[in-house]
Design a protein around this nucleic acid. Structure first.
Lengths: 198, 198
DNA sequence: TCAGTATAGCGAATAGCGGTCGCTTTGCCA
DNA sequence: TGGCAAAGCGACCGCTATTCGCTATACTGA
């Protein structure tokens, strides 16, 4: 980057994005905690202190990454939520892309989603906001299902959280009992059957 | 401790236990990562380097704690598993003590179980062994339920993992929708209904 | 009885971390 | 063309986990 030319806010944002893009692979190999700011700076082709011009702290780098990921997922899920098919079918589809998302970033998420929990409280709140938006989307689908009469009356937010959490062991188990596809289908079967009016 | 007197293996183990006991409260207040070895040593009434005579690394302290916790939980669950009542009722009871366990150590677990994921691979494997033992116990209960005809035929290990993971959001949500008791009961209802032959 | 030895325990030193500071380099603009 | 704001950087700071060499101690065997 040329010196002397002030960056517009947009350019700064783009630069941040580029930096994270270039650095993600290092996180993948070593994990976030184990990657030093010096290494991050090297991977980004920057001096260490220049990095601090774009991210105030190391945590902020992780925060930036997560906001992006959750945002992207929510966006994709929103499109599915708008389709005019039964709510349970939409739920299945959302969970399918959720799973694909997890799988695509598997080792990255495995390492990073856990480290995210150790961020400063304020940063956590910010991630939480994104997470809640996603939870609320799932909740909405469950509420619709209840209204449609497909699901029995359950606490929709609790069910949403439950559903989201059931995906974790599908992807991250060390003792898989089938393909990820199969495991997810059975998981969804159990969950949706648990919601059905019987 | 007097110097010069070699400690038997038992005494060493007891000493480790004592150290962790005295230090847990500090972790509770500050979190593991945020507690320095100097502080841990102080809390244990030891010199910093003496601590290293009992635990090779900082991580090992956390590891020791977790092995104990999972071990205790598994032991308690085993007692329940042996009772002669329907499998689904035993499942409910095991999950109840699991929840109590989580709640009793809530802030500790919230902070520590996540940090545990960042331990050295070898340490993780050791924790994993304990976790698997617990998973297998739950799996056994589900298998019994299937044999008894109370549950439909599902992958018992997958269901076990699913069940264990559904408890997480009950305890650790930032948006509770009722008392922990209530939330857990509804969670179990959904899960068990998902397993029922309908 | 008393040197020899093994070990509990410790303070100081080490390497490397996240983060800061003050300087240099650059290109725009008056 | 000279002044200036901003990009970028290397050296530095205080802290960390961990290691090392030493001391103090009590048991052992001659």
């Amino acid at each position: 980057m040329p010196k002397g030319i002030p960056l517009t806010e947009e350019e700064q944002a783009k630069r941040r994005h580029e930096i994270v893009d270039q650095v993600v692979n290092v996180f993948l190999k070593k994990g976030f905690q184990e990657t030093s700011m010096r290494e991050i700076a090297e991977a980004a082709g920057l001096g260490k202190s220049t990095l601090y011009d774009y991210f105030k702290t190391k945590d902020e780098i992780l925060l930036y990454f997560f906001e992006n990921q959750i945002g992207n997922l929510t966006e994709a899920a929103q499109k599915i939520a708008l389709q005019s098919i039964p709510a349970d079918e939409r739920l299945r589809q959302v969970m399918k892309i959720h799973l694909e998302y997890l799988q695509a970033n598997k080792s990255l998420f495995m390492k990073l989603s856990l480290e995210a929990q150790r961020l400063k409280l304020e940063s956590q709140k910010q991630i939480q906001r994104g997470r809640h938006a996603y939870q609320d989307l799932i909740r909405g689908l469950i509420e619709e299902g209840v209204r449609e009469g497909a699901f029995r009356k359950v606490d929709p937010l609790l069910a949403a959280r439950m559903l989201i959490n059931t995906l974790v062991p599908v992807v991250y188990t060390s003792r898989p009992t089938g393909t990820t596809q199969e495991m997810m289908e059975e998981t969804m079967d159990i969950f949706l059957k648990g919601l059905q009016v019987c």
